[in-house]
Design a protein around this nucleic acid. Structure first.
Lengths: 215, 215
DNA sequence: TTTAAAATCACCCAATAGGGTATTGTTTTC
DNA sequence: GAAAACAATACCCTATTGGGTGATTTTAAA
């Protein structure tokens, strides 16, 4: 049983090299190559990979966004992030987007193959230097973690907009100006928001908004 | 040059075994053993380790708290967390407390030695299963990360207490009951809190409190 | 096409919150 | 032992917020 791998990579040289390596190694098949993430859904549906090798830096949709999308629609597909720069922020965003592993672009081919094998078998390969970044990133931080998909309060777009302004600490008259509506309309929206969120004050609404990720 | 290691571990058998292994291996010296974290400061100052091998589960002060304290006072000391259970929450807390690496208790001795060597040399050893937990923990989460040490608003204990109640969404009369003080006193405290936090409303104060970690 | 939801505006009233000032002890610190 | 900070209380007045009720228009869905 061969592991089917789809490659997302904007650099043609790297892309072709990876494809050659994968197809030249027993047990691995490159089932698709994409130069960017703009047609990720068709690409994925057509090729049905087991593992996606994802570059972070791509024109158009970046690797983090595509990771998030693939993970939402095809949670069974493992995503292995390949990154050149040691950008903690990017690594961390990919982490939250649902990546299964991290490998450095200048890692040797056998490490690529090992990592693909590992994610395919449910593991979480992380290059040592990436691990260091991740650890360093969280050291001495306060963290508020929330699951965005937990509850949907069914807020309308306008209500979300008002809520965001409330989170910013703006008062009703300011919100009214900002949203080009009257003070009374703002108040009406706020009342609806409170009912949907089951709260009775601004600070409670703000709390929920932050914790649920402002949906 | 030998690596000096201090052990924090409540299980005597494990503690003694680790000490024996370390002292029996060239290049490693066990410079201190503690059954709990209650006298961590004396222990550390007396033994001056390069690396601390820290158990998470300990009576009294737990390994996470001790990790935080050691990291605050002795940032040059590397802390290697050893853990039995795959508790993502605990692993994650230790991550934020400033641990440099994670190793599983049932890893073989040579992995211990490798990991100690790695942290000592600035690496970040993470057991594969721990890496998996860490990745899984962040997948599909919203995260608010803040640095707690950034600003100190010099709130008094009482003010912090009031602020915590405000974060809970309680209104002044409830806070008054909870804190066994009068309504007017609550208001006075709130005014002081606002001045110190440079805000002018409850929701702004709550926001700052959450983001700064309620100091 | 009827229904339903969303968005808009308005008025009333009460509750809550915010700002200022002042006084009185009690700690804590220098 | 004096000065500074903290805790607690009270009263003033205004601004803001929260809840109810009702209405119109637009948009979207059944």
């Amino acid at each position: 049983m061969e592991i089917r791998i789809a490659i997302f990579e904007d650099n043609k040289l790297v892309r072709d090299a990876l494809q050659a390596i994968l197809n030249g190694t027993p047990g691995f098949t490159c089932c698709g190559i994409s130069a960017d993430g703009n047609h990720w859904e068709e690409d994925i549906k057509r090729n049905l990979p087991d593992v996606v090798l994802m570059d972070i830096e791509m024109p158009g949709l970046n690797g983090i966004e595509v990771t998030q999308y693939i993970n939402d629609l095809f949670p069974q597909i493992k995503i292995l992030i390949q990154t050149v720069f040691n950008d903690s922020e990017k690594i961390f965003q990919a982490l939250c987007a649902g990546a299964s592993g991290y490998i450095l672009k200048n890692d040797p081919p056998h490490k690529y193959l090992d990592a693909i094998n590992e994610v395919y078998n449910g593991g979480a390969p992380i290059s040592a230097s990436v691990a260091k970044k991740v650890l360093g990133f969280f050291a001495n931080k306060n963290v508020v973690l929330t699951s965005p998909s937990s509850i949907d309060y069914q807020l309308s777009e306008r209500e979300k907009e008002i809520l965001r302004l409330m989170v910013d600490g703006r008062q009703y008259k300011d919100i009214a100006e900002q949203a080009f509506i009257s003070y009374e309309t703002v108040r009406t929206h706020v009342k609806h928001i409170y009912k949907k969120l089951h709260v009775a004050s601004r600070s409670e609404a703000v709390m929920k908004a932050i914790q649920q990720g402002l949906r």
